[in-house]
């Protein structure tokens, strides 16, 4: 039988899921709760200057890209499979929308991050 190309999407899905499970809740807590309410962090932790400095370093760029792109690929695969389970069989259209969206998001994020000069 013909080998499936699913491992490409499944690996991105798995990597995104792993990342989301490891740092997702912490990110929500820090960026959505702790910083706005002034807990544990200085109030200007997420100021424009700080965030710009973060995304000027290569480590920062890679981190932001990984969080955006892998989360997107994870969501794309999950939505694709969910629609399939619910009996939506416009396979090509669903795939293009889900994975195309994740791909576009990845390219836009990578381009934007690269444009941020030190």
């Amino acid at each position: 039988m013909k080998r499936s190309n699913e491992p490409i999407f499944w690996s991105l899905f798995g990597a995104g899921g792993m990342l989301a499970a490891l740092i997702g809740p912490a990110l929500v807590f820090i960026t959505g709760i702790a910083v706005p309410f002034g807990l544990f962090f200085k109030p200007d932790t997420m100021s424009y200057a700080h965030m710009l400095a973060f995304s000027q370093s290569w480590a920062g760029k890679i981190f932001v890209l990984a969080v955006i792109a892998l989360f997107l690929w994870h969501a794309a695969h999950r939505i694709h499979i969910l629609l399939h389970d619910f009996g939506v069989h416009a396979v090509t259209a669903v795939r293009v929308l889900c994975y195309g969206g994740a791909f576009a998001g990845t390219v836009i994020a990578a381009y934007t991050l690269l444009m941020i000069k030190a």
Binding site: M1, R3, W10
Partner: peptide, 16 residues
């Protein structure tokens, strides 16, 4: 494993 690696093999499962 040739059967397993196909779309009809392990990859047909969506982990329900």
């Amino acid at each position: 494993l040739g059967l397993g690696y196909a779309d009809e093999g392990f990859w047909g499962c969506t982990a329900v």
